[in-house]
Simulated scan of single mutants.
Amino acid sequence: MQVQNDTKPYDTINVTPMLDLAYVLLVVFILMTTASVQGLSITLPKPSNTPSSEHHELLVVQITAEGALLLNGAALTAQEIEQRLAAAKAADPKITVAIKGDGQASYEPVVKVIDLCNRLAVDMALVTSRIGT
């Protein structure tokens, strides 16, 4: 009885199981990333083609890098701004407050101004600028 000794090495590797595993991992990764992404639901205003003939007052509240509050360029405390906004709201219920925070300012004073506008039921807008301007 003679035993055959095949010492010939394999010259190919079966990569099908490895590719199956890679595809399964890819599908799991895609499903997990799309399932974990949650967005904010924002209702954007729709533009109208007719210009409004109504003109309402616009107040600008600025927050400096040091956290100081300015109302139309005049430095005021948060209580004084609240009083002025309440008085302006009584005079014109459709006033708008533009909130302009300095890029180096902490976020807390900006949030306080937003909360103040929400509390007074005043329309507000956040002023942004392009980087480098």
Rank of each mutant, 00 (worst) to 15 (best):
1 M>P: 01
2 Q>M: 05
3 V>D: 01
4 Q>I: 12
5 N>S: 07
6 D>T: 11
6 D>R: 13
9 P>A: 04
10 Y>A: 09
10 Y>L: 05
10 Y>S: 07
11 D>M: 02
12 T>C: 08
13 I>M: 03
13 I>G: 02
14 N>T: 01
15 V>N: 03
16 T>P: 00
17 P>E: 03
19 L>A: 09
19 L>T: 07
21 L>R: 10
23 Y>L: 11
24 V>N: 03
25 L>H: 07
25 L>S: 09
26 L>G: 11
26 L>E: 08
27 V>W: 12
27 V>E: 10
28 V>R: 06
29 F>W: 07
29 F>Y: 04
29 F>R: 07
30 I>P: 00
30 I>W: 03
30 I>E: 00
38 Q>G: 11
40 L>V: 14
43 T>P: 10
44 L>P: 03
45 P>L: 02
45 P>V: 02
46 K>P: 01
47 P>D: 13
50 T>V: 15
50 T>H: 14
50 T>A: 13
51 P>L: 15
51 P>S: 14
51 P>E: 14
53 S>R: 12
53 S>H: 09
54 E>C: 05
55 H>Y: 10
55 H>R: 15
55 H>K: 15
56 H>T: 04
58 L>I: 15
59 L>K: 15
61 V>W: 00
62 Q>F: 05
62 Q>V: 00
63 I>R: 05
63 I>Q: 11
64 T>I: 10
66 E>Y: 09
66 E>T: 07
68 A>F: 14
69 L>E: 05
72 N>C: 10
73 G>I: 07
73 G>A: 07
75 A>N: 14
76 L>R: 14
79 Q>R: 13
80 E>G: 04
82 E>W: 09
83 Q>T: 15
84 R>Q: 15
84 R>C: 08
86 A>H: 03
86 A>W: 01
87 A>L: 06
90 A>T: 05
90 A>R: 13
91 A>W: 12
97 V>F: 13
98 A>S: 13
100 K>I: 06
109 P>L: 03
112 K>E: 11
112 K>A: 12
113 V>A: 01
114 I>C: 02
117 C>D: 01
117 C>F: 02
120 L>G: 01
120 L>Q: 06
121 A>W: 04
121 A>Y: 06
122 V>M: 05
123 D>N: 11
123 D>V: 05
123 D>K: 12
123 D>Q: 09
124 M>T: 06
127 V>F: 05
128 T>C: 11
130 R>E: 09
132 G>Q: 07
133 T>H: 09
